[in-house]
Design a protein around this nucleic acid. Sequence first.
RNA 1: GGGGCUGUAGCUCAAUUGGUCAGAGCGCCGGCCUGUCACGCCGGAGGUUGCGGGUUCGAGCCCCGUCAGCCUCGCCA
Length: 603
Amino acid sequence: MALPYNKRTHDCGALRAADIGKSVLLSGWVDNFRDLGGMVFIDLRDRGGITQLKFDPNSDPAAHGIARTLRSEFVVCVRGEVISRGEKVNAKLPTGEIEVVVHEIELLSKSETPPFEISDDTETNEDLRLKHRVLDIRRPRMKNALMLRHKITRTIREYFDRNGFLDIETPILTKSTPEGARDYLVPSRIHHGCFFALPQSPQIFKQLLMIGGLDRYMQVARCFRDEDLRADRQPEFTQIDIEMAFVQAEDVMHHVETCIAEVAKVSRGLDVALPLPRISYAEAMLKYGKDAPDLRYDLTIKDVTEIAGRVDFGIFKDAIAKGGVVRCLVVPNGSEMTRKETDGLAEELKGIGAGGLPLVKVAVEGGKVVFQTGIAKFFTDAALVAEICTQIGAKSGDLILFAADHSDSVCKYLGWLRATVADRRGLIPKDRWAFCWVVDFPAFGYDAETKAVFPMHHPFTSPKDEDLHLLKLGTNEVPPKEDLLKVRAKAYDVVLNGIELGGGSIRIHRADVQSKIFQLLGLTPEDAKKKFAFLLDALRFGAPPHGGLALGLDRIIMLFGGYSSIREVIAFPKNARASCPLSDAPGEVAPEQLKELGISILK
RNA sequence: GGGGCUGUAGCUCAAUUGGUCAGAGCGCCGGCCUGUCACGCCGGAGGUUGCGGGUUCGAGCCCCGUCAGCCUCGCCA
């Protein structure tokens, strides 16, 4: 009865009415079985889909006898004939017009009862799914995610291949660079006390490839960062890493957006209008409170610092006195939100650092616009109320949410409120795909704690030409902090629906600019040499102007696949505590291994 | 490190104010059933309510601690 399971004629999603009459050999898993006492029906599943098998006790008693003993997830191989279902079509299945009447069956493998059903219908606890990822991957949803991943990755590879990019691998065992995220370290057996670092990104290597004259590079690159996780952050993730020589920002952006549009078409049938809209970092922060604005809905933040200064309300006055700002969000018809809802928002807002949530409801009394509830009592001047409403476009029935603090905090609070309120009040059109580029990032940020200037992107990011004068090139002077914070970078992020898909920059290729930047960042030439020696060496030998970008592949697949977490599009992801429930990694190692590496563990 | 949510049968969940509240659906096991496709019908097994302590006459429910999972702030080239 042994069947040649290696000679499958079709997969389980392939057969159609046109195949009626064919003799076929199928293999797969028992998805569902219906034993009617005489006739037995089995849904056979493999990667391609599901085909109904029919076992008839009269014509094929031996096969029927075996079929009766089958259970969920048993693995079988069958040989049979494709027949029409006649009137009994199952419209839910692509193969619903046919079934296979089985003449021979071989049980290849039994299965224990699975800990959860292999089905999309019930949402199983994710921890359990990750422990039994093998079974989880059999579910259509997961299977589709990984098939989508393949399709998108292939589309991207083909795009860049077609456009002259070379796919080049870079080292996984590399050297720790001091900037940025925590490194995952790998101890060296041969050099005790020394460590490799897994790359946070192939940043420096791709620059070296450009300086090496390879002109255009791309890689599907695994990146590693030992930081806390999120729904869209894993300790190891995949970037589409690209770099180009002799280009301006627009050239990089053109290729990236064209590629993304192709992915959108292939994965969702979307026609994305190009070029994508550009929005400055300053505008994004002001209007949306985020450097990755969600442009699917309007609901923009309004600055009311000037007018709020005329209100006798301590929170506003204090914030302004300290150089802060007052901004607000007008929630259309937000007056219908209950006290419980707004109190809830306030509580959650406190959880991210805010002192509270000043708010008012807009109403009309006696023909005049008035504020009610919340901090309404501080708005005693009817003319002022009218002026505010005109300025921010608030009308009766709206809810106004305020934030007063330093600009950074206000952006954080109102950005969070904007996204949260939009989501809870159903203001986000689910079928909209809002792409944009965020450009004109500041080159530097300022850390109040360390009182130090730091690079917003990385220290090799080129400032915009028109802002170069602020750097006092060719002198030893350090420009005032205020000037440095005005310098904009040739950096750009591509954003979809409020999630950063990727970012990049044009790199510095002028030695004088690079050394000035290091100086401004507080790095002596010796420091810089120590930290970035191999890049600086390379820059000495003729570096072409170059730049690139890295796209978060996992996020792209998550968004185009409609998943809520990148764990859903990664075959074997880590959980929120950065461990793998399947393999139980990370794990302890034998003392001998440690000894060989010259490592002892602190207790 | 901070904030929040969750933890009850193999899975998904329910259990009014602390008082027959140890329950349902699915799954599983056994039986019946020849056109099902979430097959149907009959019967059955299965739970230390994450764990530890406390309050109480009485705790799934309240309190404290702890563990685990998820979300989030910080952090994240």
